[in-house]
């Protein structure tokens, strides 16, 4: 289970994943050895999965990003598999999500 120090560590690392243990320790109010051990423990436990680089697509010439919403044809039994197979062939697609949708009107 995570405690307040763990949460403070995560909050600081989210702002700067490259933060050195000593700086991290100062910000969360502990020693650098403790900060380092806690980060390692959260990595081993899978709470911290990885540090990932974010790509700025517009710097590569992709200046438009569009979210496509696809509603599956419920009468076609293999509609989902077909969409997934087609999507794998589309090199511009970089995230796909399955949803359970609800509309709320206020």
């Amino acid at each position: 289970m995570l405690d307040d120090i763990d949460r403070r560590i995560l909050r600081n690392l989210q702002g700067d994943p490259d933060l050195a243990s000593a700086d991290l320790a100062t910000r969360v109010g502990t020693s650098s050895a403790v900060a380092w051990r806690r980060v390692q423990r959260m990595k081993d436990a899978g709470v911290i999965r990885a540090t990932r680089a974010d790509i700025n697509w517009s710097a590569l010439g992709y200046s438009v990003e569009v979210s496509l919403r696809i509603t599956l044809e419920k009468t076609a039994a293999n509609a989902f598999d077909e969409v997934m197979a087609e999507r794998a062939r589309s090199p511009r697609c970089w995230k796909s999500r399955r949803f359970w949708a609800v509309s709320i009107c206020v």
Binding site: L60, C93, R97, R98, W100, S103, I104, V106
Partner: peptide
Amino acid sequence: IMTLPGVGEVEANVLLSEERLGGPIG
């Protein structure tokens, strides 16, 4: 969210699974 002034219709999509693909560099 619904208490914010200016917010009208809201549609919620609950995430079931998410898959990360390579995209143009993949």
